[in-house]
Amino acid sequence: MIELNDVHKSFGKVEVLKGITASVAKSEVVCIIGPSGSGKSTILRCINGLESYDRGEISVEGARVDSNDRSIVAIRTQVSMVFQRFNLFPHRTALENVIEGPLYVKKEPRGQAVARGRALLAQVGLADKAEVHPPKLSGGQQQRVAIARALAMQPKAILFDEPTSALDPELVGEVLSVMRKLADDGMTMVVVTHEMGFARDVADRVLFIDGGVIVEQGAAKSVLNQPQHPRTQDFLRRVLHPL
């Protein structure tokens, strides 16, 4: 469903992606792990056109991703994104955040959008917070609203960019459990994460990225339990046993 073929990307003189080739099948959950600065987030941002790429090709269901072309809008409505820092609209309530896209981008009738918005908030366990503005919600609640907002576009896939990295540790679980439910329901997901437990239990595949290249990839359990490459082994050892 999502194909990356030899994707290169530089910021100025720094090449952050040095030929990424990967694919994500429908209903697959792929976790991208790796040290910070390795280019993980950049991959996600290239997939839905927040960043352009210099070389290679990215396509979503056969449509080429070109951040400078009008077609990017159609791609973005199919591939939603959830950000590390939530990026909810602070001047709108939780419900308004969720129905913003359906109402103004997809031009759904208000009644229908509101009904589905409420259902989505209920799905992420926030039915009672519909009328609350984001600054009055906890980080975990905000991220769940952000997930509901992404789902409201009825996307074919959702990209998660370190969705739990900005959360207090005790709030990580509520977000991961919502994501796990999505995975169980067959949502196609690409997740950049440092939550190795989540990757092991939920992901179908794991990509380990370092220095802008895919160092190792494979079934989640095999990469995480028996990493083959020394850099993967070293990274996992430092993440799992920091002391």
């Binding site: 950000f83 909810l88 896209g101 981008v105 952000a146 907002r149 992404a150």
Partner: peptide, 17 residues
Amino acid sequence: DKGQIEAAQTIGMGWWL
């Protein structure tokens, strides 16, 4: 915040919207 603009883009909003 630039994140606001990105969030708007990712739900398919164009520049004017």
